[in-house]
Amino acid sequence: MKTGDTKRRMIHIRFPKCTLTAVAGLMVSTTLLAQTPAKPKVQTSAKPEQTTVFVGNTKGGASKTAKAKPEEKNTKNNNNKTAKARQGGKNAKASLKRGNKRGSKESLNGRYVALKTNVAYDALALMNLGLEIQVAPKVSVELPVIWSLWDYEQEHGIRTVAIQPEARWWMGRETGYGHYFGLHAHVAWFNVKWNDTRYQDTERPLLGAGLSYGYKLPLSEHWGAEFSLGLGYANMKYNTYYNIDNGACLDTRVRHYWGITRLGASLVYRF
Rank of each mutant, 00 (worst) to 15 (best):
N100I: 01
N100M: 11
N100V: 00
K101N: 11
R102Q: 12
R102W: 11
R102H: 10
G103Y: 15
K105E: 12
K105D: 08
E106T: 13
E106Y: 10
E106N: 14
S107K: 15
S107H: 13
S107L: 13
L108Q: 09
L108H: 05
L108I: 15
N109K: 10
N109F: 13
G110I: 04
G110R: 10
G110E: 10
R111K: 13
Y112M: 11
V113I: 13
V113E: 04
V113L: 15
A114V: 12
L115I: 13
K116H: 08
T117D: 02
N118S: 08
N118I: 06
V119W: 12
V119Y: 08
A120E: 01
A120F: 14
A120K: 01
A120D: 03
Y121W: 08
Y121G: 00
D122P: 01
A123N: 05
A123S: 14
L124F: 15
L124S: 12
M127L: 10
M127R: 14
M127Q: 12
N128P: 03
L129D: 04
L129P: 02
G130C: 06
G130F: 00
L131K: 06
L131T: 08
E132D: 06
E132G: 01
I133L: 15
Q134V: 05
V135D: 15
A136I: 11
P137G: 07
P137D: 14
P137H: 15
K138Q: 13
K138A: 08
K138H: 15
V139R: 04
V139W: 14
S140H: 06
V141H: 12
V141F: 07
E142L: 09
E142N: 12
L143N: 05
L143R: 00
L143K: 01
L143S: 10
P144H: 05
P144F: 04
V145T: 02
I146E: 10
W147A: 11
W147F: 14
W147N: 08
L149Y: 13
L149E: 12
D151P: 06
D151K: 11
Y152T: 05
E155V: 01
E155L: 08
E155C: 01
H156F: 12
I158W: 03
I158K: 01
I158H: 00
R159L: 06
R159V: 02
T160G: 00
T160C: 03
V161K: 02
V161N: 07
V161T: 14
I163A: 06
P165I: 03
E166Q: 11
E166F: 03
E166C: 03
A167G: 07
A167L: 13
R168T: 02
R168W: 11
R168F: 05
R168G: 00
M171H: 06
R173H: 04
R173S: 10
E174A: 00
T175N: 03
T175L: 02
Y180T: 00
Y180D: 00
Y180L: 05
Y180R: 01
F181N: 12
G182Q: 00
L183R: 02
H184F: 08
